[in-house]
Nucleic acid binder design. Sequence first.
DNA 1: AGTATAGATGAATTTAACTCATCTTTAAGT
DNA 2: ACTTAAAGATGAGTTAAATTCATCTATACT
Lengths: 283, 283
Amino acid sequence: MQVSLQALKAFESAARRGSFKLAAEELSLTPTAISHHINNLEGRLNVSLFKREARSVTLTEVGRRLAIATSDGFAQIERALEEIKLSGYVVRVTTTSSLAALVLLPSLKDFSLSNPNISVEVSTGESLDSLPYVIPVRFGDASTVQAGDIVKCESFDVYGAYGMQTPSWSAKPITIFSTEWKNSELPAPPLKAWLAKNGVEQANITVKKFDQEFFGIQQAMAENELVFCSTTLAKRLLKTKQLQHFGTHSVESELCYYVAKKAHFEGKNARIFLSWLDKLLMD
Amino acid sequence: MQVSLQALKAFESAARRGSFKLAAEELSLTPTAISHHINNLEGRLNVSLFKREARSVTLTEVGRRLAIATSDGFAQIERALEEIKLSGYVVRVTTTSSLAALVLLPSLKDFSLSNPNISVEVSTGESLDSLPYVIPVRFGDASTVQAGDIVKCESFDVYGAYGMQTPSWSAKPITIFSTEWKNSELPAPPLKAWLAKNGVEQANITVKKFDQEFFGIQQAMAENELVFCSTTLAKRLLKTKQLQHFGTHSVESELCYYVAKKAHFEGKNARIFLSWLDKLLMD
DNA sequence: AGTATAGATGAATTTAACTCATCTTTAAGT
DNA sequence: ACTTAAAGATGAGTTAAATTCATCTATACT
């Protein structure tokens, strides 16, 4: 197609509106741009598309032929685009299983109450990360993440299944479930620092590791055990009386939740979702 | 339409060909351009249009929806454009009445024999001059015309109606028909120079003026008189024994035939016509 | 293991798109 | 009849989108 698509669109609008001026308004251009486009089109096609009067233009016969084709052709494309754009009101998020299961999915009903016209689709795994319209909420080493992308720096603490006895850190052997990330480059959960901060280094502790926090948490709840996990994941479970806290002190970690290229998500609905997520994780 | 038409066209081609590389070839672009367009489109629409493999791409469901619409929409427009372009095989020319009547129209059957698929439409007057696809063959002052636009510099001579007596320049009063252009800024026909060149300044000459050469020529033929006109217009009439020449010497003039913005007429058929015209006028 | 293929990313370059300034030709209003 | 308004035309200058170049990545193939 050696003729410019912009020119064809300008022509279509001018033909429909019967005026270069109105076409310019419709397309947020100047009348000059319309005039140039149509003159260019006429030159390329070697035909006259409009008959010019002093203050108006009327379509020639050949102009009418093209007007019908462009009107139908562009309308067809626009209908498909509209359908697709409507589907864009879905905000797509990909994140870890743990955050999805323990934080995001359970909180989504609150989001939906506030934003009934926004649909959020959550997926786990990393295969969608590189898609420009999927918001990747990831867990990573804060020192390798852009400051603007960090949503929440994570702390860790020990929690026990709801209703179990308070552990005696100086007597019986104690088992604590913790996590060993699949990604060996991620900083390990700061258990040693926690032990030191809480003055229980000398406790008789056995650590059982899971490759996801979610698994460790679930197991601890099922077996009335302790779990060393992030405060973010534990928060809701504390509130719903599935976990309990024993008055120990949490420790900061080098880990954080972040959204890669956060500023790139410019869509209105994506911004709304990201604001909500900020609040959700920081509270 | 906030999405780029170029991006939509790139998408349509990639979808049809199932490859960014092939789309790039089809559209005479680089694969990078295709990639940028499609990534931009996906970002704007907030959807994935292609599933990327290592060495290939496959359409997503939503991509298929858009592919159908763009394929149909653009095809519709292109069909109309093809029809219109076919109609562009008509070469449109506007020129003076004199040249049209005495040279161009009578010679067109030769042109058609050589180019049976090209149709030439000739109009007189200046109203079509500014249309970009109408070839204006004009008569003007060579000093104000771009060198590349000049087709033929014009000479003038005296001719008589066929069969009339050879004029005696030194005896009886002589009437010569000449032209006074409507456009007063055009150089007058060089009659004085002709008289001087032919050594007949002392002849007893009365000049009768017409505002078009064609009129003067027609009148001279009808009344067995002399006419001072351009050699180009006289040529065919000499050949067809409607005018005769008396052995006088033609004089060059400051006037020429030219095609305004000649180089702008790039269409194949227009170039063919212009070549033919060059030859016709120069012979 | 090395090479080829094809799409991705981002900076730099190119070019078409667009605007601004000015002009022209009516048409409308006084 | 004269003046003003409306709307398209032309061409130079500016801007922003389109495009390329350079480089990289992830397979697939030999």
